[in-house]
């Protein structure tokens, strides 16, 4: 039973990751592989603040968002100088730089060993002790993100970013400041990832750089490629599918190290298969 609650918590953390990535990649058309880095910024900020400085959980989330907003804003400005394919390459680089920071700023981030004994969350004075209680918190987060996504995608903003994806020049000619919209989409997407990261670090109470590698970003991309671009349903489906898959592998009983790589290999194979057969994904509204 605890196991099921654990899976549900992970799902409710990753659905917002998928939704926010879809906002950027599926709807705005920006193929950015930095999501794990943004996720990491939130995770590390919360870990450092709550453990070393005794800051409350919610405050640490707020600071995490602030840090991520600044980082993503700067990143977006820099990467926007790169055209087409080189943007994606640059985003790889950004993720690698962030990973290097997590890995090497040992006094702050604990280096390769990471940060452990992250204190449990205390939300509005109530300590979140049981996993069931945490599930409640993460579900609330997931629902809030879903509602937010619903609002943003049906608003004019949601329309404009899709127009930017479909034909940037036309959107520019019709008077829209494309650069601003792209930056805002990037920042919003990163901020949601940051909150998810904060939740993750509080839940697992231990983080290390391995959760925020380039491979993890690719894994997040797989979620929305399977689910389909520009689809909220797709993002949710993709997240659930991709979380449940390795759990199925676990039942097959392979040694952990092999299982971990097998999971990655399967994701790679799925990507190749999907691009060949159905680039739109299961629920996608847009073919890349």
């Amino acid at each position: 039973m605890d196991y099921i609650i654990h899976i549900l918590i992970i799902i409710s953390i990753f659905v917002p990751l998928a939704l926010s990535l879809d906002l950027l990649v599926g709807r705005t058309g920006i193929l950015s592989i930095t999501h794990a880095g943004m996720y990491g910024l939130g995770a590390y900020t919360t870990a450092i603040l709550t453990k070393t400085y005794g800051v409350s959980f919610l405050t640490s989330v707020a600071v995490g968002i602030l840090v991520t907003v600044c980082a993503s804003y700067m990143l977006s400005k820099v990467l926007s100088r790169l055209k087409g394919d080189y943007y994606t390459l640059g985003s790889f680089g950004a993720n690698i730089i962030l990973f290097s920071l997590f890995m090497n700023l040992t006094p702050l981030t604990g280096g390769p060993m990471g940060i452990f004994n992250i204190p449990q969350a205390v939300i509005f004075g109530i300590p979140v002790t049981s996993t069931l209680a945490f599930l409640l918190v993460s579900l609330v987060f997931m629902c809030l993100v879903i509602i937010f996504m619903q609002m943003i995608t049906t608003s004019r903003f949601g329309l404009i970013i899709q127009a930017i994806r479909d034909d940037t020049l036309a959107t520019e000619v019709f008077g829209y400041n494309v650069k601003d919209f792209k930056t805002v989409a990037f920042v919003i997407s990163a901020s949601i990832a940051s909150i998810a990261g904060s939740l993750y670090s509080t839940y697992i109470s231990f983080i290390d750089p391995s959760s925020f590698t380039l491979n993890e970003s690719i894994f997040m991309l797989t979620m929305i490629i399977i689910g389909g671009f520009a689809s909220k349903r797709g993002a949710i489906f993709g997240a659930v599918f991709v979380i449940l898959l390795p759990e199925l592998l676990r039942f097959v009983g392979l040694p952990d190290s092999i299982a971990a790589q097998l999971r990655v290999a399967i994701y790679g194979a799925i990507l190749m298969y999907l691009m060949y057969k159905k680039p739109t994904g299961v629920f996608g509204n847009y073919t890349p």
């Binding site: 404009i160 127009a163 479909d166 008077g175 829209y176 400041n177 919209f181 805002v184 520009a230």
Partner: peptide, 25 residues
């Protein structure tokens, strides 16, 4: 140069007036 994944109605709505990101949200 049309926005291929937008509907005709959505395309025309977008063309009416440009706006800032903050307003559009």
């Amino acid at each position: 140069k049309l926005w291929s994944n937008l509907t005709v109605l959505e395309s025309f709505l977008m063309a009416q007036k440009s706006e800032s990101w903050l307003y559009s949200i």
